[in-house]
Amino acid sequence: MQVIDFIAANGPWAWIVAGLVLLALELVVPGGFLLWMGISGIVTGLVVLFQPIVWPLQWLIFGVLSLVTIAIWVRWTRTRPAATDRPYLNRRADHFIGQEAVLEQPIQQGFGRIVLGDTVWRVSGADMPAGQRVRIVGNEGAVLKVEAT
């Protein structure tokens, strides 16, 4: 009962301390959610410090602030392009679009093979003889689409 009385007597500071605890937990358990909940707790504490509010309304302010800030953060992180120095790391076939190569095996019935670097790639396109120079114009999975140059 003394803890509840203490929290009731020091409501704004309880919110601020809880917010700081959530911020500290964010350092241990990263993920972003505790950051925004900690900030919401501190803001709720500051609001209650200057304007005394009943407990249910305090929890409502904390909950709404937490949900809104987390939703904005999630939306922002999902729409922001990932900065990378290797944009084709998991999309190797996209890296070759626009390059030219020589057919190793002729394209017969729509499929043939070319060598790019140290890898043999399956290609699709119009029937062409081996040795024909082709340009890679697209891909469908791991099959490169080519056309004669």
Rank of each mutant, 00 (worst) to 15 (best):
R133F: 12
A71L: 14
I42P: 09
S66P: 03
T79H: 11
L23N: 08
Q51H: 12
P30D: 03
V28D: 01
F96W: 02
P81N: 07
W121K: 01
L46Q: 03
A148R: 12
V28N: 02
P87K: 02
I72D: 03
Q108F: 13
G11I: 11
L89I: 15
L46M: 13
W59I: 04
S124I: 08
F96Y: 14
R91I: 03
D127R: 11
V29C: 11
Q51L: 12
D85K: 13
D85S: 14
A83F: 12
M37W: 09
V143T: 15
V146M: 02
T69K: 07
V137F: 15
V48T: 06
D94Y: 05
W121I: 03
V47W: 01
G125C: 04
G11D: 06
T84I: 08
V137A: 08
R78I: 03
L65T: 05
A24E: 10
A24C: 08
R92V: 01
N90D: 11
V43F: 08
T77C: 10
W13L: 13
G31L: 05
G11R: 12
A126R: 06
G98T: 06
A71M: 07
V146W: 00
T119D: 07
T44K: 14
R91P: 00
I70F: 03
L35T: 12
L23W: 06
V120D: 11
V102R: 04
W13Q: 15
I61L: 05
A83M: 11
A9K: 00
V102L: 04
W55F: 04
G63P: 05
G32R: 08
I136P: 00
L27Q: 08
P106D: 07
V123H: 00
L34H: 01
D118C: 09
V21G: 13
L60F: 13
P12Y: 14
R75P: 04
G11K: 14
G63Q: 06
Q99H: 15
L35Q: 08
W55H: 00
M1C: 04
A83E: 12
G31P: 01
E100A: 11
P12L: 13
F62C: 04
T84S: 15
L89Q: 12
V21Y: 04
T84Y: 03
K145R: 03
I136G: 05
R113M: 11
I97L: 12
L67Q: 07
L22P: 13
Q109F: 15
T119M: 02
Q132K: 10
W121N: 02
M1I: 11
F111D: 09
D5L: 00
I97D: 05
V134A: 08
V123W: 00
V68A: 12
N90G: 01
L67Y: 06
R133K: 15
R78W: 06
N90V: 02
L27N: 08
L23E: 09
L49V: 03
A24F: 11
A18V: 13
G125D: 08
Q132R: 13
I70P: 00
V54R: 06
T149R: 10
S40K: 06
L22E: 08
H95C: 08
L67R: 06
